[in-house]
Design a protein around this nucleic acid. Structure first.
Length: 586
DNA sequence: TGTGAACGCGCG
DNA sequence: AAAGCGCGCGTTCACA
């Protein structure tokens, strides 16, 4: 059952129960916001995992935070905006009405809104003009149904597009996983990652010296800057300015083309050591220093905003706080609450395994059975070392042509022709300007107009050698993108299924909270996801449940593999650690 | 005074 | 040893 919810003009919500075809099965309810909140609460409490309704709404990030703040979790939803984005460009639905429709409200970026959620915040603090829409309604077929026309129409279009596509099962799974991801993203932002400001502060002080006002250099950086100036015999060089620094390095007789750390590392000069140290610490200060801590850590939790579907491949993005770049340096500050544990799990060599399964390369899949996949490649005699296996695999998935990676590729191609054939084919498609599609049906965008123009120009009889070189190089660039898109995007789908399965099973582990208490209690006694990083999750769990959580996370990986690849024999092993501190896990 | 490109580096 | 994919973000600097 679907329950489609829309905002009415006058501070209310219309909730329309629909069957799986999108037809009304009961009259729609007109509810005040408070009534709606109670309606969702009771509906969720009265339903089981198998008969829970799927809430259909325009945008999870606009509806769910307020429900969470009221102490309510929902089990399933259908996020129309995210689903639309997938269906709009999927190869599988290319002939649907949805794909052919004039771009409108559902193609617009979500309205930006700062997402600070104070306890007690309601749906209506988040109220915006998304529903009102500025693009107008381009659909001629208006109905007299009391439900918001545009939203219902969009649901029907989406259901239609899926039903009549070549592989409805995969797209249904993708839309369900994407929508579950949206719920998880909102829940993770709400719960936050447990963060000890005390430990973080001690760590910063140990590295940088005592805290100083924002904008000033801490003691340790100041003294390193002094050493740099002395070594370069330049009293005014500013190590924060790359231009300035590059000139000073050249004046000192060093032949460098940039100030990148890896280039500096190859040089022998008294300035190198203090400079590399300075760069490392300056980065720590600016990216995750005290100012960052004050900005992003609230009540002992890091609350980044996750953006499902924020990357073209289907990976998540984040906004604010740099959540997907948490340096290993500061992970010691991620600490479980008293009596709780962190269950940290990451999928081992996820992308190569995805590639093996996508291409039904049984040899490559076998290399990863019950072991480190790179070690398995070595054991098969394809290359000599694990490092080589890894470099070669990355080269295959990213499109390396030169260097060590390029040299190792032919050996990999001989051993795993199916896997390497798939990546090559994806690259060729991109070079032609064609689209490629992930396992579950997310397709790559087409290259832009300027790309097409450059290609067309190269075909002109009057084209110069420069034109042709430019066109070839640009085509190869796009080919590397599509080559990687298939693998990265399918891996993202695996990760969504993994998380959705974890979430579902964790929920069954403990009785749903009756949700009568304060907002903070939604996750009070329950293991819950608190962090996600492409192929890695953290569950914050009461200590006595941590071992069961580990098993759940492990089983969920296998389930995700089956959901995507059926019974193709590929393993998705995890590294799982039950720890007090994130730093212990890596 | 504001805006955006370029750079560099953190993560997968 | 430093290329080959996808990101976010802080800083400097040129230019409006």
């Amino acid at each position: 059952m679907y329950i489609l919810v829309t905002r009415t003009g006058n501070q209310g919500v219309l909730a329309a129960p629909l069957n799986s075809a999108g037809q009304p099965i009961r009259p729609a309810l007109t509810l005040s916001y408070d009534e709606f909140t109670e309606y969702v609460r009771t509906t969720e409490l009265e339903s089981t995992q198998t008969d829970a309704p799927r809430w259909v709404w325009d945008d999870t990030s606009r509806w769910y935070p307020a429900l969470l703040a009221s102490g309510i979790r929902v089990q399933r939803c259908h996020d129309l905006r995210l689903s639309h984005a997938i269906l709009r460009s999927s190869e599988l639905t290319a002939s649907s009405g949805l794909a052919g429709a004039v771009p409108g409200r559902w193609d617009a970026a979500p309205p930006f809104e700062p997402q600070q959620q104070a306890p007690g915040m309601t749906l209506f603090d988040l109220d915006g003009d998304f529903t009102a829409g500025e693009h107008g309604d381009d659909d001629p077929g208006r109905s007299d149904h009391p439900v918001d026309d545009d939203t219902l129409t969009e649901l029907l279009r989406q259901l239609d597009a899926v039903s009549f596509c070549a592989n409805p099962g995969r797209l249904r799974l993708l839309l369900a996983a994407e929508s579950a991801g949206a719920l998880i993203a909102a829940e993770m932002q709400f719960a936050g990652l447990p963060w000890s400001t005390d430990i973080h502060d001690r760590l910063l002080t140990a590295e940088l010296g005592p805290r100083v006002a924002h904008g000033r250099r801490p003691e340790r950086l100041e003294s390193l800057a002094g050493n740099i100036r002395t070594a370069l015999d330049d009293a005014s060089v500013n190590p924060d300015s790359n231009q300035d620094l590059l000139k000073a390095l050249r004046r000192a007789g060093l032949s460098v083309t940039s100030t990148r750390a890896w280039e500096l590392m190859e040089l022998e000069h008294p300035v190198i050591a203090p400079l590399l140290e300075y760069k490392k610490l300056a980065r720590l200060l600016s990216a995750n220093g005290w100012y960052w801590m004050d900005t992003w850590i609230v009540d002992g939790r890091f609350h980044p905003e996750y953006v499902p579907g924020g990357v073209v491949t289907g990976r998540w993005a984040t906004r604010g706080g740099g959540a997907l770049q948490l340096p290993k340096q500061v992970r010691g500050a991620v600490i479980a609450d008293d009596g709780w544990k962190l269950v940290v799990a990451d999928a081992a060599q996820l992308e190569p395994r995805i590639l093996a399964a996508l291409s039904t390369d049984t040899e490559m899949a076998a290399a990863g059975r019950g072991t480190d996949l790179y070690a398995g490649i070595v054991a098969s005699g394809v290359v000599e070392t694990r490092a080589h296996a890894k470099i070669a695999m990355l080269g295959a998935m990213y499109g390396a042509t030169t260097g060590e990676s390029g040299r190792l590729l032919p050996r990999l191609a001989r051993a795993y022709p199916r896997a390497l054939g798939l990546t090559e084919e994806a690259a060729r498609a991109g070079e032609r300007g064609d689209i490629v599609t992930t396992r579950l049906g997310r397709s790559s965008p087409r290259p832009g107009e300027s790309w097409q123009a450059v290609q067309a120009q190269a075909y002109d009889p009057a084209a110069s050698a420069v034109d042709e070189r430019r066109a070839r190089s640009q085509a190869r660039d796009w080919g590397r993108f599509t080559r990687n898109f298939v693998v990265q995007g399918s891996a993202a789908e695996w990760a969504l299924c993994w998380m959705a399965e974890i979430r579902k099973t964790l929920r069954a582990l403990s009785e749903p909270n009756t949700g009568r208490d304060t907002a903070a209690s939604v996750f009070a006694d329950t293991p819950h996801l608190v962090f996600f990083l492409h192929d890695e999750v953290i569950v914050h769990s009461p200590a006595d449940l941590a071992d069961r959580v580990s098993a759940i996370v492990t089983d969920a990986a296998a389930t995700a593999g089956r959901l995507l690849f059926g019974d193709f024999p590929v393993d998705f092993p995890l590294t799982v650690a039950v720890v007090d501190s994130y730093a212990e896990a890596t």
